[in-house]
């Protein structure tokens, strides 16, 4: 079975030949320590990852340098973004400072061909072999972080909901066109990332989640499904209170069933395993960052025991392989997935 077949089968809640593995991203430092000199694509192939997500912020967004020393850039939405230790930057000043700014606002053009060059290269190399996964950052994430800024966005949800509808629509329009373009090029699945929750629960109330977050997510999911690819959503945090809403958007898969927020993989499997492919859950905090390789191995075994039976589980980290992950722990995780993840499972 090829990697892409494994991923697609798992996303369709079926049982492949073995539990698949991929990541939302593997940091360069970790890759370099495991396979010195290998490109990202070589790493995916040599380490036997079953797929790769072509992350929009890295592959298809444009940036303009503002301050090289401080690593500050202006992202394509107009927000100032600063890069710290991770591949993805953190917005420090939003594009829209008052509602007036929005009247003359010109959003980026998702139909520019250069945006899809990276995706095309991945498709050329891996089509039919490993899953090449299209990606958009969710509307809530971009509209909040890049367009209005966290605080202004949250305040406007209560004080000026029309403003939220306006900015959400701008981003949704971009994302829908981007999704269509990526899937028409031949991507095998669609990933939509962006947190709806934090460790203690949803970022906004279930009522606001339903009013402001879910409709845009649903439209993106619907477009992906209508173009015949499975769709999965990533959100960190404790999503218990909004789980039914997320499932109701029609997603095939959900990542990462965040262990640091107390999400229990076994419980989620029991409740939603028939409707959802579960993805992730290997703790990229303590387990992958500083625990022993044996502890990593045990955690992988337990995750497969909880979610692997009957298929519908893709073993991944609980966010991504960030720069703080111990390379030997990530290598141990991949090996453990192979050792314990062969179907039919035999974990006694």
């Amino acid at each position: 079975m090829t990697g892409v077949e494994r991923i697609i089968k798992a996303l369709k809640r079926e049982e492949p030949d073995m539990v698949p593995h991929m990541e939302l991203g593997v940091d360069r430092k970790v890759r370099e320590a495991i396979l010195p000199g290998a490109s990202y694509k070589d790493f995916v192939e040599k380490m036997g990852l079953d797929g790769n997500v072509i992350f929009d912020k890295v592959a298809s967004w444009s940036y303009e340098t503002v301050d090289e020393t401080k690593r500050i850039v202006r992202d394509q939405w107009g927000a100032l973004t600063q890069f710290g230790s991770e591949t993805i930057g953190h917005p420090i000043e939003p594009a829209i400072k008052s509602e007036k700014d929005l009247d003359g606002y010109v959003p980026p053009d998702p139909d520019e061909e250069w945006r899809y060059e990276s995706l095309k290269k991945w498709i050329k190399r891996f089509k039919g072999d490993r899953a090449v996964i299209a990606h958009v950052t969710d509307v809530f994430d971009i509209a909040r972080e890049s367009l209005l800024g966290d605080v202004a966005y949250y305040e406007a949800m209560i004080e000026n909901p029309d403003l939220i509808d306006r900015v959400n629509k701008i981003v949704l329009d971009y994302n829908l066109r981007s999704i269509k373009n990526q899937l028409e090029l031949g991507a095998d699945a669609l990933a939509i990332t962006g947190d709806f929750a934090m460790t203690n629960g949803p970022l906004v109330s279930p009522k606001f989640t339903a009013r402001f977050l879910i409709p845009a997510l649903k439209e993106q999911v619907r477009l992906g499904l209508s173009l015949n690819v499975p769709v999965f959503k990533h959100t960190d945090g404790d999503i218990t209170k909004i789980m039914d809403m997320l499932v109701g958007t029609g997603i095939d898969g959900l990542h990462p069933i965040d262990p640091m927020a107390g999400m229990d993989l076994g419980e989620v499997k029991k409740q939603y395993g028939k409707r959802l492919c579960l993805m992730g859950n290997i703790n990229c905090g303590p387990t992958l960052s500083w625990k022993s390789e044996e502890e990593v191995r045990q955690e992988v075994k337990e995750a497969i025991e909880k979610a692997g039976y009957g298929g519908g589980y893709i073993c991944m980290s609980s966010n991504s392989i960030h720069s703080g992950v111990k390379p030997e722990n990530y290598a141990a995780m991949i090996k453990a997935i192979r050792d314990f993840g062969q179907y039919p499972l035999d974990l006694d």
Partner: peptide, 14 residues
């Protein structure tokens, strides 16, 4: 208690 979320917290703070 999980009855207020970030938006409510922020407008009250303001």
């Amino acid at each position: 208690k999980g009855e207020y979320y970030l938006p409510e917290l922020l407008v009250s703070g303001k």
